[in-house]
Design a protein around this nucleic acid. Structure first.
Length: 911
RNA sequence: GGGCCUUUAGCUCAGGGGUUUAGAGCGCUCGCCUCACACGCGAGAGGUCGAUGGUUCAAAUCCAUCAAGGCCCACCA
């Protein structure tokens, strides 16, 4: 049992934070990322103890990480899912939750056994020769060597999981849980042994579940074979039944021929007998309405030992079940002359023989659905075999309830439908696997005098009943341990502190590819064994595809390695890009070039910090020694600052809301817009001191203050660069890290919608002047004059106070503002709402260009006005639409008219 | 055979009954090495929101049908 750490016993020493990069240096992600991850991990910043909940009163927020396969390497799917999980964890941690992300590894039964077997084969070692025990030693060695490679790779991505909780699906605790669950289910009558047709994988020589079978369309043949009707002593009556089959090699296992009871062609033959071609067995003709009269030749050969439907027919009619295949896919003695042949060789041989004997009537091309093992890609053989099953229906009932009653919510909601569909039509789960690597089935058989086990005489128990018993050779399906993951990782079945504190969990993040395999089964296990849902929210991500929308696969060689991307662009860039692409539930067509966007954003933030960061005094190590921030009063802030704080407040609110609703890409976009557009493009430009002057301390202080909030806001998306910059702004106390900071929550008090609106007007004025400059190719270095004729005196004086913004941003040498200024001759005019801007362009003005510009502007406005007026002319609209909507449209029309009038006046002015 | 998803700018995608005349990134055009950033700055061009019909005062947005692409499930030999 892994001991769950407790705070009072574990007080990790917080290391020295890495020294900041020198001021003015370019952003180099790799060095920054490695250093900070070490700092966080060693400093215990990911640690969450049960006491934080029990005694600290913190609300838990728990995500069980889908344990990657021990054979695994990080792929883009992990990149995406881990980005989402870590983002949520960091977000909630900053919000003050006891945010626990539980990592671990899955032993991945078949996959791992295959890999190790292949590796050994290269050294000339055969699994069967060395035997079970020796083989398992190799697998454990392999696990030791490669087991946590992927977890190391996840660290590179920045995953902030509490590694002290790391579990392996075959470690002691998980094994205990698995055994207990098997025994419990057996005692509840929900585990049983049955002999049914199973999906047999002849390559891996194990049974697999339906979910592990892929049905693929393949070009095959449909052979029509003639079955002669014979009497009791085997003489042909001259009649015959033609039967179409896609699997002639199973003919030797035919135990009947079936026709539809109402089929007039064959009705008189029912109860008679036919001779099976190739092997000469005499079998009855039966009637069953499963048969489709219009398919093939209208009759079916019944092979209960090798086809699920035939098996059902056989049951109904009490037919013998002949199993003619060995576990390796060769025919056994039932195959008669074909015994010992591999199944597809047998098919060829049997077809050739029937062709020669005239029993084969025809061969047609036929597209059929072939079941394939998703692991080995071998064609699945339905085979009669005794296996252990879990009766799923009782478990499914509860699991359906908790989704139907809203205890568990899927995001996006449509996955709940898929989930229901599967559960409502659930089949029993074959859980035994004929493998060596996995949890041994806790069933003990009594042995007879020869040491052979007696199949019917067994005990189900965790421990051996003692002498005279041997354990079942088989192991359990990998998912039989992973379905316990959310609670077994916390110590279940023991009632640990951790379990009490952190179960049930909060969110599961996973791809839809394992909705049935894992997500649904976890919910079944949770409700059945713990009487709780394992988590309340399921966030289902889309799958990552290549640029052309194809699945990434080794064989296509179209995979994009996240580690390569991290090396090239940085982990923050990879994370931000994936977050941005993570629209709810949609598959993602990934172009590696997309990561450039993330890199550019990280770089932008880095550079933005230099604008004010270079004015912070630092010691020799580059650490800040002064705190620029100061007490301030919102009302004393200037217009731009009040606008910025208003935008900050709104942005934080919107991002928080988006994250809470799992709208990850929206949150990423909102943060991006604020940081790049508002903060960098407008605020930083406005706040810069005039050439040659030093910026005001108050202005720097606000930049630092807001930037700190920005770093917090971006931290869940881009933890590394934000943490790095966090330490460059002001002196920090030990452990006062960005990761441990509180989620920004700017005060509503510190917003000023009026200031924000005025600033927007200023932005429009500036943009207008810039447009004129661009139109006339005025070089950026050339200062020009401009006049603003404000629509009213109040705005005029407000703009007057903010005139240096416009001057600076529009590159003006002089700016006149007033409510009744005259338009100078030979000037370009811009209409911004009720205000007009005149740009005197003596000597430069081109009447043609100007006329064109104004006409285009008028055209656009008229188009707009036309639309609005059309609405207003519609009486139904005016009478039925809400008053506010109508009023708004009226206002729009009026504003547009005024603007058009102003533009037209200016146009007329040109002569 | 059932069910689901997608179709919006050249490309990749947001948006999801009234948000000024539909947005972003990339690409494209023009001008800029403006002392944070060319991984950048400024200005632009470019969509009758797959088609048709309907509901509504109002549809890219809701409904129906169709078309194209994709996915999942299913026992047609």
């Amino acid at each position: 049992m892994t001991e769950i750490p407790r705070d009072r016993n574990h007080q990790p020493e917080i290391p020295e934070p890495p020294a900041p990069a020198p001021v003015g240096s370019a952003y180099e992600p790799e060095a920054v990322e490695l250093a900070w991850y070490r700092y966080w991990e060693e400093g215990g910043f990911f640690h969450v103890d049960p006491d934080a909940v029990h005694e600290g009163g913190k609300e838990p927020f728990v995500i069980p990480m889908p344990p990657p396969n021990v054979t695994g390497r990080l792929h883009m799917g992990h990149g995406l899912q881990d980005t989402v999980q870590d983002l949520l964890i960091r977000f909630k941690r900053m919000q003050g939750f006891a945010a626990l992300w539980i990592p671990g590894i899955d032993h991945a039964g078949i996959a791992t056994q295959n890999v190790v077997e292949k590796t050994l084969k290269k050294d000339g070692i055969d699994r069967k020769e060395i035997g079970r025990e020796a083989f398992l030693e190799h697998v454990w060695d392999w696990k030791q060597e490669y087991g946590d490679i992927i977890l190391q790779q996840k660290r590179r991505l920045g995953d902030s999981c509490d590694w002290r909780y790391e579990r392996f699906t075959m470690d002691e605790g998980l094994s205990e849980a698995v055994q207990k669950v098997f025994v419990t289910l057996y005692e509840q009558g929900l585990v049983y042994k049955g002999e049914y047709l199973v999906n047999w994988d002849p390559d891996n020589q194990t049974v697999i579940s339906n979910e592990e079978v892929d049905n693929v369309e393949r070009n095959g043949s449909l052979w029509t074979v003639r079955y002669p009707v014979v009497d009791e002593d085997g003489t042909e009556t001259g009649e015959y039944i033609d039967i179409a089959t896609t699997r002639p090699e199973t003919i030797p296992a035919d135990t009947a021929v079936a026709v539809h009871p109402e089929d007039d062609r064959f009705r008189h033959l029912v109860c008679k007998t036919v001779r099976v071609p190739a092997v000469g067995r005499i079998v009855p003709i039966i009637a069953d309405d499963y048969i489709k009269m219009d398919f093939g030749a209208g009759a079916l050969k019944v092979t209960p030992g090798h086809d699920e439907n035939d098996f059902q027919i056989g049951k109904r009619h009490g037919l013998e079940t002949v199993s003619l295949m060995n576990l390796d896919g060769t025919l056994n003695e039932e195959g008669g002359p074909y015994a010992g042949m591999e199944r597809f060789a047998a098919r060829k041989a049997i077809v050739a023989d029937m062709e020669a004997s005239g029993e084969l009537v025809k061969i047609e091309d036929y597209v059929q659905t072939v079941p394939i093992s998703s692991r080995s890609k071998a064609v699945i053989e339905p085979l009669l075999s005794p296996q252990w099953y879990v009766a799923m229906e009782p478990l499914a009932t509860r699991a359906l309830e908790v989704v139907n009653d809203g205890t568990i919510t899927f995001h996006p909601a449509r996955w709940a439908n898929e989930y229901r569909r599967w559960l409502e039509d659930i089949r029993d789960w074959p859980i035994s696997r004929q493998l060596w690597w996995g949890h041994r089935i806790p069933v003990w058989y009594r042995t007879d005098a020869d040491g052979e086990r007696i199949e019917e005489d067994f005990v189900v128990s965790v421990d051996s009943p003692g002498e005279g018993y041997v354990q079942d050779e088989d192991v359990l399906d990998t998912w039989f341990s992973s379905w316990l993951w959310p609670f077994a990782t916390l110590g279940w079945p023991d009632d640990t502190d951790a379990l009490k504190a952190f179960y049930p969990g909060s969110v599961l993040v996973s791809g839809y590819d394992i909705l049935f395999f894992w997500i649904a089964r976890m919910i079944m296990a949770g409700t059945h064994f713990t009487d709780e849902v394992p988590y309340t929210d399921v966030f289902v991500t889309g799958m990552i595809k290549d640029k052309q929308g194809r699945w990434m696969s080794k064989s296509l060689g179209n995979g994009i390695d996240p580690l390569d991307m991290i090396e090239t662009y940085g982990a923050d860039a990879v994370r931000y890009t994936l977050a941005k692409l993570c629209a709810q539930g949609q598959d993602i067509k990934l172009d590696p070039a997309a990561f450039e966007g993330g890199r550019n954003f990280a770089n932008k933030i880095w550079n933005a910090s230099r604008v004010f960061g270079r004015f912070v005094e630092r010691d020799d190590a580059g650490r800040p020694t002064e705190d620029l921030r100061r007490q301030r009063d919102f009302s004393e802030l200037n217009l731009a600052e009040r606008w910025l704080l208003t935008r900050l407040h709104d942005t934080v609110e919107a991002v928080t809301e988006s994250l809470n609703a799992y709208r990850i890409s929206e949150a990423a976009q909102l943060a991006y817009d604020f940081v790049w557009r508002d903060f960098c493009d407008w605020y930083l430009e406005v706040s810069k001191a005039p050439r040659g002057e030093s910026p005001a301390r108050d202005s720097l202080a606000l930049s630092v203050e807001v930037f700190e909030k920005i770093l917090g806001l971006l931290h869940p998306f881009m933890p590394f660069v934000t943490e790095e910059l966090w330490w460059t702004l002001r002196p920090r106390a030990e452990g006062e890290a960005c990761i441990a900071s509180a989620w920004p929550s700017p005060s509503k008090e510190e917003t000023d919608p009026e200031a924000a609106a005025l600033f927007t007007t200023i932005q429009d004025l500036v943009t207008g002047i810039r447009q004129v400059r661009a139109q006339y190719n005025v070089p950026p270095s050339q200062r020009i004059r401009a006049l603003v004729r404000a629509g009213d005196a109040a705005t005029a004086s407000a703009l007057e106070r903010a005139s240096d913004y416009v001057e600076r941003l529009a590159g003006l040498s002089e700016l006149a503002i007033g409510a009744d200024l005259e338009k100078p001759a030979a000037s370009a005019a811009i209409v911004v709402g009720a205000h007009e801007v005149f740009v005197p362009l003596a000597g430069m003005i081109d009447l043609g260009v100007e006329r064109q510009r104004l006409q285009k502007e008028i055209g656009a406005k008229r188009g707009f006005l036309g639309g609005v007026e059309k609405k207003l002319r519609n009486e139904a609209f005016v009478s039925r639409a809400p008053e506010a909507v109508v009023a708004k449209e009226r206002q729009k029309a009026e504003d547009a008219k005024a603007e058009i009038a102003a533009l037209e006046a200016n146009l007329a002015d040109l002569g």
